[in-house]
């Protein structure tokens, strides 16, 4: 099949040669796709502006031997501009894109849930429905859950004993009961556990009313949890700004 078309979100771009770019997409039907955008760095490019990170696009590819080539692009959601106008949104959004890039490791393997999750996350971020830090943390928890590493914020992650519990252990997978609690497990505030549960389930009325202290505590736990299960450092996370 020389040509195919898909909805996609641009995850990242890398310069190639004089005026080209290698663009990494998260597509709806084919998962991650890396393709060459010919001449997109030239000011005269017809679709260079659409192949920027954060853009949701309808894109047509031509199958190549090693990399596919982008032949046509239409904008579906122009989130890049709004995200870049606020540095806090930009750093949070970049961490979301990097996490998606890591979570969908194999190219051309469908990852429909990851696609819709990222599309929704970027839209919420760009339209400022909620605080950027909350959107990022919610995205990370849900993306990890889709990938098979669901956090257990209430019940014990080891034995399943109904919570709430008072200790949290990243390696165990979330809250742990007194019997399962490994030594050195931190004891976050009960409100932080409630916030984590709200972020995981999308209970925004609870999440939006959380205090700064509990948001910061939850962010630290989410960052540690994400990096542990992704087995790599998310470089963008250390630059995330939180108001």
């Amino acid at each position: 099949m020389p040509l195919y078309r898909d909805d996609a979100i641009v995850l990242r771009t890398q310069k190639l040669g004089e005026a080209d770019r290698i663009v990494t997409f998260l597509t709806r039907e084919r998962g991650k796709v890396r393709a060459v955008g010919r001449g997109v760095r030239r000011t005269s490019s017809r679709f260079g502006a659409r192949l920027e990170p954060f853009m949701a696009v309808d894109v047509q590819f031509h199958t190549g031997r090693t990399l596919d080539t982008v032949t046509q692009v239409e904008t579906v959601g122009a989130y890049a501009r709004r995200v870049c106008e606020d540095y806090e949104l930009y750093t949070a959004g970049t961490a979301m894109l990097e996490a998606a890039d890591r979570l969908v490791d194999q190219e051309h393997e469908p990852a429909v849930q990851q696609y819709w999750l990222l599309a929704g996350g970027l839209r919420a971020l760009a339209e400022r429905h909620h605080a950027a830090g909350l959107v990022l943390d919610s995205y990370l928890l849900r993306a990890l859950a889709v990938a098979g590493w669901a956090l257990s914020p209430i019940d014990c992650a080891r034995c399943g004993e109904p919570g709430p519990h008072h200790a949290f252990n990243v390696a165990a997978g979330g809250a742990v009961c007194p019997r399962c609690r490994p030594p050195g497990s931190p004891s976050p505030a009960p409100e932080t556990f409630t916030l984590l549960a709200a972020l995981l389930s999308g209970d925004w009325s609870t999440a939006d009313t959380a205090s700064t202290r509990h948001r910061n505590e939850a962010s630290g736990l989410v960052a540690a949890y994400s990096q542990y299960y992704l087995e790599r450092t998310l470089r963008s996370l250390r630059m995330v700004e939180r108001s």
Binding site: P53, F54, A80, R81, V83, C84, E85, D86, Y87, Y90
Partner: peptide, 14 residues
């Protein structure tokens, strides 16, 4: 005039 350049401009202007 790309995402990285715009974000840098936002940071600098702030």
């Amino acid at each position: 005039p790309n995402v990285e350049g715009e974000a840098t401009a936002t940071y600098l202007s702030r």
